[in-house]
Design a protein around this nucleic acid. Structure first.
Lengths: 186, 186
DNA sequence: ACATTAACGGAGGGGTGCCTCCGCTTCAAA
DNA sequence: TTTGAAGCGGAGGCACCCCTCCGTTAATGT
């Protein structure tokens, strides 16, 4: 991800400060995952074992903190696209979408991010599209996927599916399977 | 819906009190639709043009208020099942699901209700299943719908799809179409 | 070892929401 | 009209969260 956030959030120089920075990031990652974008900042500081002041020094706004966490998550997600590069067109797409689901299912905040409007969210969405869209295009050109849906349709469909609650993993997979079958060209 | 909520929430006797009761219900309906289950009760009272005390007198807990609104909404939704009774198996199911989507898409709270756990939510879910499940069973028996998915799978899939954001109605319909195609027996 | 200064953290002010309580208002039965 | 009581509504106590400020602490370079 090459985009820089407008406010420079940088890892501090001093060792203790770096520890706190990392602890905050880890705590924020957990909190955002569990409670979504609205997680309490004071709670995050508590979890990290630092004062609220330290949180604000490192991340002046909620957005700064969220972006720093979020960019890392997205980078990780996008890298999984490389893993499927060698597969046949349909398998590559399906496999990446499966990972997408498994990965995002536990992170409410990411789901929200896909549907929210802001400069950074847009950037990250673009990043996901940059790695995902070629997979879809390839599958469509190979005649494996219907051509009356866009990649955007697919992502929204999947992200919607992810946000629902499931009885268990098996059900989630079953539903995803149905959706993917719908995507196929018949 | 025959289930009674545990706490008796009753429309008051006095004319002015009845006016307030109805205003509260209308305000709550709007607020829950717009903001979900967490809508501010003080805001609801404000919208209704009554004091917060009046809200609490009529609905001692948030749950009481929400249930009263919600039961009405669900009843309305379930009635649409009658409208499709005469259609062929697949059309009946697809058509009901379409209505389900259109109806619930604007009501965040209902979506949440489908995935939350509580006595009343369970009751309402059962009610939806009571009218929806036969539609699905009929379509499956007619060989129109794959038999490796349950009605529960379908509802969760659809409710997930609904919760996502869409560029426009056309996209929503396109995605729903894909999901329904996946449901079909091929 | 020491001085410098980055970094800490939490008290506190402002805001919002939840819910209770009780003095005042207004309905409606007599 | 009178009057008892049902109903009203908002002040106020509590809890939580946001964010700032500044006196204190401790890491680092010499």
């Amino acid at each position: 991800m090459s985009a820089e956030s407008p406010v420079a959030v940088r890892r501090p120089q001093r060792a203790d400060a770096r520890r706190n920075f990392d602890a905050l990031l880890a705590a924020a990652r957990e909190s955002f995952a569990e409670q979504g974008t609205d997680a309490s900042l004071e709670d995050i500081a508590r979890r990290a074992g630092v004062g609220i002041g330290t949180l604000y020094r490192n991340f002046p706004t909620r957005q700064d903190l969220f972006e720093t966490v979020y960019i890392g998550e997205i980078e990780q997600l996008c890298q999984t696209a490389e893993d499927v590069a060698g597969l046949p067109p349909w398998d590559a797409l399906a496999s990446w979408l499966h990972r997408f689901v498994a990965y995002v299912a536990t992170k409410r905040a990411i789901y929200e991010a896909l549907n929210r409007d802001s400069a950074m969210f847009r950037t990250c969405r673009e990043e996901i599209y940059r790695v995902g869209e070629p997979l879809m295009a390839r599958a469509q050109q190979a005649g494996a996927v219907r051509t009356d849906v866009t990649f955007d349709d697919t992502v929204r469909m999947i992200s919607g599916l992810m946000s629902a609650g499931y009885r268990d993993e098996a059900q989630r997979d079953r539903i995803l399977q149905v959706a993917l079958d719908g995507l196929k060209r018949h």
